[in-house]
Design a protein around this nucleic acid. Structure first.
Lengths: 114, 114
DNA sequence: GGGGAATATTCCTGTCAAGGAATATTCAAA
DNA sequence: TTTGAATATTCCTTGACAGGAATATTCCCC
């Protein structure tokens, strides 16, 4: 495929598309938190919080640091950098430079009668 | 929630997280295409292509222009701009400025014995 | 108006992922 | 070593969603 950015994992978007996980990410942007704090602030049951954090971990969106009983989760920068790179590769689209349909329509016409 | 960017729809990520739809987006970055062309290039059956395009339309990621029999699909810039804005709001995270866990750990300690 | 091309829609089925509840694990402290 | 707190894991059920096949719709052209 044409625009496959290195580092931009397809599953990153999938992981982020779940509302609770997105909320976790939004919450963690202000700094690391434990599972209990995340569950409490987002009104999640602890097992669901752990499960969502597991998905985020597997996608390397967060990382864990064990501290005795607790696990402290924090965001990893790489997926965001990769996503940023990917989105920026659509700059031409975002600037709406290529939306002259007319050329394309003319091309269609020419194929009409071969 | 804290970082709710205006314009960044939660369902945008969900729509993009489906591999075939992501492929469609990658394909359309080089310019508008008809349903038939999309289906052919991505080796999809026409109905599936139409269905995926419908999802992308509903999420305003693409827009349609009817031309006689055919429907020409093209990317819309807004979702990408919104996504760009959202990702950039994680710049602090991407720069890894705030990952001093030590402060947080000390704070945890102080709560230990109230 | 009939036929064929391009596209959309419907119905069905299987798969997968999220939530609930219960349980297992790990650790510190007494 | 037992207790309790914090977290992870398992099992089950249910709902959403993607693909397949068939059909409906819309349009142009003869």
């Amino acid at each position: 495929m044409s625009g496959n950015n290195p580092g931009m994992e397809m599953t990153t978007l999938s992981a982020l598309s779940e509302p609770n996980r997105m909320n976790i990410v939004e919450l963690l942007r202000d700094g690391p938190l434990t599972v209990g704090e995340i569950a409490e602030r987002l009104d999640l049951r602890q097992p669901q919080a752990s499960k969502h954090l597991k998905v985020l971990s597997e996608n390397r969106i967060v990382e864990v640091q064990a501290e005795a009983n607790r696990r402290i989760y924090k965001l990893r920068p790489e997926p965001f950098q990769a996503l940023d790179t990917w989105v920026r590769s659509f700059q031409r689209v975002m600037e709406e430079r290529f939306d002259n349909l007319d050329d394309y329509l003319r091309e269609l016409q020419s194929k009409e009668k071969p």
